[in-house]
Amino acid sequence: MAEPLLAVESLVKRFGGLVATDHLSLAVEPAELHAVIGPNGAGKTTLIAEIIGELGVDEGRIRFDGHDITHRPTPVRSALGLARSFQVTSLFPDMSALDNVALAVQAHSGHSFRFWRDARADASLRDPAHDVLAQVGLGPRADVLAGNLAHGEQRQLEIAMALATKPKLLLLDEPMAGMGTEESAQLVTLLKSLKRRFTILLIEHDMDAVFQLADRITVLVYGRAIATGTPDAIRANADVRQAYLGEEEE
């Protein structure tokens, strides 16, 4: 079997006495939609921060697309094809939706030490940005300031910005957070349309969505991966039922 696109190998991260990531291993195969679930405090967000490089690790390795990225800074990881969306919406609120996406396009089209030409009139940035906005269903909202978009639209814009960097791997950090039923359903449709076209690592609380979308699921408890498998296998796994699904009723 070919090398996985992302391989997290025996990762350890301690905060003082607390072990946030405890010899965690995880492999994401090309073109799969891999979900990570776990109760609050299981270390899901820490894991994202480690993969994207905002948080250093104490032990272990992270390999991505043939590179050891364990100690590479965030922008380098982005250049290699890692993109994330943020759990708490993180946009450029004082710029239009289109400007937001165009910046993401610009980040991956050479250096930006270009001082003279009007970037807002640059078709090589604007056209792909329009395309991506249309893909996520924000086409008509291109000129609205990101800060003035509705919550659900901001989540869509989050994903659009990640897509615009043409990532090899899309890290989605709780994209459904704070969404109503209808908005969630729309987003599930969007994610289904992205499945197979992108490799996706999805971190999500919404169990319905996860079991609908994922090819494989990894269950995280106290910084450890206690099980990995297909949705059916995870549903049937006794450890998971006890450690996690049993206490789902929060």
Binding site: I52, E54, P73, T74, P75, S78, A79, A83, R84, F86, S90, L91, F92, P93, D94, M95, D99, A102, L103, A104, Q106, A107, H108, S112, A119, M161, A162, A164, T165
Partner: peptide, 18 residues
Amino acid sequence: MVIQGCRSNERRMRAIGF
């Protein structure tokens, strides 16, 4: 655009690759 992006949200700028 990069400079204004840094003002607006530098963390996001780094995440998208700047």
